[in-house]
Design a protein around this nucleic acid. Structure first.
Lengths: 137, 137
DNA sequence: CACAGATAGATCGTACCACGATCTATCTGT
DNA sequence: ACAGATAGATCGTGGTACGATCTATCTGTG
């Protein structure tokens, strides 16, 4: 009803509401990360490592794809996270060009705490996001 | 099934998949904005103006709330967007402290094009996002 | 109607983060 | 064995949001 071909005022409102819901979630997420003593980027990196579902630990390139970042941006992100004691890197024995990334116990612990909060928050936002997406369907 | 109280590997994977879907959407959105000749921030600002549903045009504070930015960050964003010819500002006659923000025809035209693309993209991502959110429910 | 406090916005310097361009090291196919 | 591909590292740049602070305008209370 709200979306033939041209854009209706309702479409704009729905798009704006979607972005607002997204912003509120992202704001929550950034604040949660900073309260846990890590940057939002570090948090995303740790989640990508922990949620990696390939065979063996992810390489930096794998993470760049998951995070939708350029490779060299990910290189620096991993280095900063390693400096902060959240992840470790080790050369892949099978291919010395590759660096395998893993979480430290400290990173693991912070990620667990953040993930619990995020699971809660996503449950809260689920209904709203689905509603708004339906308006654009 | 996937979420009693402690976090399961499936929870981490679901959280990671959600962020990945989000990143892919945001990457699309940023690229679309830049292709249209505006920054992602300008695009969000224009959408917040066009999707505003209050009485009369939004003030800078209204937009700061919608964009989840600090007021002074929004002030600068609006100034840059005005410099780029995308929006105009005018003092509220009823309260000279307030600046009312509106789109220029140029901004209106760019936003229309971007919004069409975003409606399409969101339809594409809707199923996936809903799926992932359901995994955490 | 005057004044303290609240509200809206503007300005300045800072920090982070991602990027393009470029460089090195390692691997692979013929 | 060598050219090209792949993975990562380094350097300098730009955009964007922020904290701290300042000015201008409005409002409630005496």
């Amino acid at each position: 009803m709200s979306s033939p071909d041209p854009l209706s005022p309702g479409d704009y409102r729905a798009l704006a509401r979607f972005r607002y819901a997204l912003r509120v979630f992202l704001r929550f997420s950034e604040d949660a990360a900073r309260s846990a003593g890590v940057t939002p980027a570090h948090h995303q990196l740790m989640l990508a490592v922990k949620g990696w579902d390939g065979a063996g630990p992810p390489t930096i390139s794998d993470l760049a794809d998951r995070l939708q970042l350029k490779l060299h941006s990910t290189v620096e992100l991993v280095r900063r996270a390693a400096d902060a004691g959240l992840v470790t890197t080790a050369a892949d024995e099978a291919d010395a060009r590759r660096q395998l990334v893993a979480l430290t116990p400290h990173g693991e612990s912070i990620l667990a705490s953040l993930s619990l909060q995020h699971r809660e928050e996503l449950r809260r936002f689920r209904t709203e996001m689905v509603d708004v997406l339906d308006e654009l369907a």
